[in-house]
Simulated scan of single mutants.
Amino acid sequence: MDRKKINRKTATEAIRFLDANMLDATPTNYTFAYLYLTGANGWLRKQVDGITDGGVRLHQKDVDDLMDAAPGETGHGAASTLDAQMDEQQAGLRHQMLSFADLTAKALNNTGAFGRELAESAEQASGTRDLASVISAMIEKTAEMERRLAETCRETERLRQDLDAARDDATRDALTNLPNRRAIDRQLKTFADHGMPMAIAFCDIDHFKSINDRFGHAVGDRVLKVVAETLAETMAPHVVGRFGGEEFVVVLPQVDGATAFTLVEKARTAVGERNLRVRDTDEVIGQVTFSAGIALCGNDPEAALREADSLLYEAKSSGRNRTIYKAAA
């Protein structure tokens, strides 16, 4: 297996590791998962195995403490690995941009050379009787130029697709394919900077830990995908993102609180109506529901997120499977 495939396999396993432990897919957490899965830091792996023995999952505090304490088997602790990873990604993008510039320059040079060759051929044609051979040579040169330009176009398109994929991977949740927290934060900032009013809804799957405990994390992943798909379909065209774990965020620009409440309730009903079963055994999972909190946002997205989170907690505390929105008095 080549290095690219190995790296992709490790990345997929790292995301699954984070999901299994309900950890956000942040750069630091991804680095932690990478170090553990590859065994690049033996001390870290031993500590994690000790904590998770018996099926206990990791918590964010465990990750933070272990990353701070990790010895320098990978450089100067885990931080240097993260820096190197980010540098490698940036270097890769820079290389692609330079390659694109080289391709463009090559195409321009080829076009100029072709023009000069045509001029030379025209001069030859004016001073010779063997016009057929000159025309044949010009046709051959034209065909060669077309082949070069076609190859340049194909290489340029491949580079464009690679760049698009790199940008998309950085803002997509690997499991649900929804925008991730980074993408949502960026969108909220953009709307706030433009003074656009909006509603923000926090949605959290009820009793998700019990689903993982009863049926396993693979089934839990499927439940997350189903909820993600249902939210995205029922809330369209508004953006739904996975904020981390079993928590989702819906951004509703230029939507008032009452309308946002109606839309979220529609989504909550749609999720609750799904008849979910375990694919391999056909065992009934039972009704899956979520709780939600809604807040209005002006120019301070962080404050709105905190308010929505607080209302979500209130919905959980008051019985779950409900949406709470409190209009300003």
Rank of each mutant, 00 (worst) to 15 (best):
residue 54 G to K: 08
residue 134 V to P: 00
residue 268 R to C: 01
residue 53 D to H: 12
residue 322 R to W: 00
residue 329 A to E: 11
residue 80 S to H: 05
residue 92 G to K: 12
residue 272 G to K: 06
residue 9 K to L: 15
residue 271 V to M: 01
residue 83 D to Q: 15
residue 203 C to F: 02
residue 12 T to W: 04
residue 42 G to L: 09
residue 212 N to E: 06
residue 96 Q to V: 14
residue 85 Q to F: 12
residue 108 L to N: 14
residue 24 D to F: 07
residue 272 G to M: 09
residue 257 G to A: 03
residue 214 R to K: 03
residue 177 N to A: 11
residue 75 G to L: 08
residue 166 A to F: 00
residue 312 L to W: 00
residue 322 R to D: 04
residue 209 K to P: 03
residue 127 G to R: 05
residue 274 R to L: 11
residue 181 R to Q: 02
residue 49 D to K: 08
residue 136 S to R: 04
residue 272 G to Q: 12
residue 31 T to D: 07
residue 250 V to R: 03
residue 128 T to H: 07
residue 32 F to G: 06
residue 133 S to T: 10
residue 244 G to C: 05
residue 27 P to D: 13
residue 322 R to A: 10
residue 112 G to A: 14
residue 190 T to Y: 04
residue 59 H to L: 13
residue 115 G to P: 05
residue 90 Q to D: 11
residue 271 V to H: 07
residue 311 L to S: 10
residue 79 A to S: 11
residue 114 F to T: 12
residue 260 A to Q: 05
residue 233 E to A: 14
residue 175 L to T: 03
residue 181 R to L: 04
residue 208 F to T: 00
residue 169 D to H: 11
residue 242 R to W: 10
residue 64 D to E: 13
residue 68 D to V: 14
residue 133 S to M: 09
residue 173 D to E: 02
residue 126 S to M: 08
residue 168 D to L: 07
residue 145 M to S: 10
residue 289 T to Q: 00
residue 6 I to R: 14
residue 181 R to G: 03
residue 285 I to G: 01
residue 76 H to E: 15
residue 76 H to I: 09
residue 260 A to I: 15
residue 45 R to Q: 13
residue 101 A to W: 13
residue 236 A to C: 10
residue 273 E to D: 12
residue 186 R to T: 15
residue 320 R to T: 02
residue 221 D to P: 05
residue 250 V to P: 05
residue 192 A to V: 13
residue 234 T to I: 04
residue 239 V to H: 00
residue 187 Q to R: 14
residue 20 A to M: 12
residue 184 I to H: 07
residue 199 A to E: 06
residue 92 G to M: 09
residue 123 E to R: 06
residue 45 R to E: 03
residue 150 A to W: 13
residue 230 T to N: 01
residue 299 N to K: 07
residue 194 H to R: 11
residue 211 I to H: 04
residue 173 D to Y: 02
residue 199 A to D: 02
residue 247 E to T: 08
residue 160 R to M: 03
residue 57 R to A: 09
residue 54 G to D: 11
residue 256 D to N: 13
residue 132 A to M: 02
residue 329 A to Q: 14
residue 58 L to K: 03
residue 280 D to A: 11
residue 99 S to G: 15
residue 291 S to F: 06
residue 120 E to F: 09
residue 293 G to V: 09
residue 217 H to V: 03
residue 304 A to N: 01
residue 66 L to R: 05
residue 9 K to Y: 12
residue 277 R to T: 14
residue 13 E to G: 04
residue 165 A to C: 07
residue 222 R to T: 14
residue 210 S to F: 12
residue 211 I to N: 06
residue 84 A to W: 13
residue 151 E to K: 15
residue 141 K to R: 15
residue 197 P to T: 11
residue 307 E to M: 12
residue 155 E to W: 05
residue 198 M to R: 09
residue 243 F to H: 13
residue 80 S to F: 06
residue 294 I to V: 14
residue 18 L to R: 02
residue 247 E to P: 01
residue 263 L to G: 03
residue 201 A to P: 06
residue 125 A to P: 04
residue 85 Q to K: 10
residue 329 A to S: 05
residue 249 V to M: 14
residue 204 D to L: 01
residue 312 L to E: 07
residue 82 L to A: 05
residue 32 F to E: 00
residue 14 A to F: 00
residue 150 A to M: 06
residue 257 G to I: 01
residue 296 L to V: 00
residue 301 P to Q: 05
residue 187 Q to C: 06
residue 239 V to N: 03
residue 118 L to Y: 04
residue 114 F to Y: 15
residue 105 A to T: 15
residue 322 R to V: 08
residue 250 V to K: 01
residue 150 A to L: 14
residue 12 T to E: 13
residue 153 C to V: 14
residue 175 L to P: 05
residue 229 E to R: 02
